[in-house]
């Protein structure tokens, strides 16, 4: 194809997206669109899968059967989210094995928030409330993204997320209405998860390299800073309801702008964690790689059994 023809196709393609038409896997698409989608969807899938680890840590130690059943269901949902997204990604011609390989070799990224440890039960509350809360803010606009399989996966994901956030907030509420010790535990969890949750919405607009192209393709509908502001404005009143203090001395309602002003985010910390130097990066990767490697014989045995059954069926047919 000549450059002119490609340019022509690209114009038709961009116009389709501008008209709110969906792009489906077999449609012609610019190589950059395909690559960007594989990168973003797989990153998203990896985040769901690695995101199971910090919460999986507390399943066996949940304080009651009710909490245990809820946490188990939540973590199972995150596995499901990962699977919807991997399969959406595979429609673009990349294999599941390649995607795992990218995660395990460190080539692909996942949300850096999951590199923080979950040290008390209150962290299950804070993670559901804040981390799932921030994830919802990120994900809701993606239900209208231009790539059909991604948009459809996000609709399912968003339907399931609201239970995650509510169960987290309920944990916080219970602790905040409990003994002084329990309340302290809740405050401590908020102190540790607040800033990483703000960072989770991505670098500032000034630093964000992909924003403009992503806006055009509807991979992004609001900028990181706008999403962050939305998150803060909706979360502060929830913290007040719990009787907890947001760990930011500069946090203040701005009457003129109608939003909360907030303090400086420690971006050095963010980049450190992204680069692999967070508290749990190594531990998370080790858990994923060893699950994959130790599961190999199970995958092989299942495949061998399926082949054997198939062969027997053929033989009987003859």
């Amino acid at each position: 194809m000549s450059n002119e023809q490609i340019k022509n196709l690209e114009e038709i393609f961009e116009a389709r997206i501008a008209r709110d038409e969906k792009i489906e896997p077999k449609d012609w698409m610019p190589e950059k669109y395909r690559k960007t989608h594989i990168r973003q969807m797989s990153q998203h899938a990896h985040s769901e899968i690695v995101g199971m680890l910090p919460e999986g840590n507390w399943i066996t130690r949940a304080p009651s059967l009710r909490r245990k059943a809820a946490l188990l269901a939540k973590v199972q949902d995150e596995a499901g989210h990962g699977l919807y997204l991997y399969s959406a990604c595979e429609t673009l011609g990349v294999s599941r094995d390649e995607l795992y390989e990218q995660l395990h070799s460190g080539k692909a990224k996942y949300s850096s928030i999951f590199n923080y440890p979950t040290v008390t039960w209150a962290d299950m509350g804070a993670v559901g409330w804040l981390v799932d809360g921030a994830a919802i803010i990120n994900q809701v606009p993606l239900c209208n993204t231009s790539f059909g399989p991604y948009a459809r996966a996000m609709v399912r994901v968003c339907k399931e997320e609201s239970f995650h956030q509510r169960q987290g907030f309920e944990i916080m509420l219970k602790l905040c209405n409990g003994s002084q010790e329990q309340k302290d535990m809740a405050q401590d969890a908020l102190n540790r998860w607040w800033w990483p949750s703000l960072m989770m919405l991505g670098p500032t607009d000034a630093e964000s390299i992909h924003t403009e192209q992503s806006m055009k393709w509807k991979l992004k509908r609001k900028s990181n800073d706008d999403l962050r502001q939305q998150f803060i404005d909706q979360t502060v009143p929830q913290a007040e309801l719990l009787g907890l203090t947001i760990p930011d001395p500069d946090l203040k309602w701005n009457d003129e702008k109608g939003v909360y002003d907030f303090g400086e985010i420690n971006w050095d910390e963010f980049w450190q964690v992204v680069k692999g130097h967070g508290p749990c990066n190594k531990q998370r990767m080790k858990a994923r790689v060893s699950a994959w490697e130790n599961g190999e014989w199970v995958r092989d045995a299942a495949m061998a059994y399926a082949d054997k059954k198939e062969a027997r069926k053929l033989k009987e047919a003859i």
């Binding site: 959406a88 996966a153 299942a302 059994y305 399926a306």
Partner: peptide, 11 residues
């Protein structure tokens, strides 16, 4: 609804 990997139809 989507797709998934499995060793055979039953799985």
């Amino acid at each position: 609804f989507g797709s998934l990997h499995a060793s055979d139809a039953e799985m």
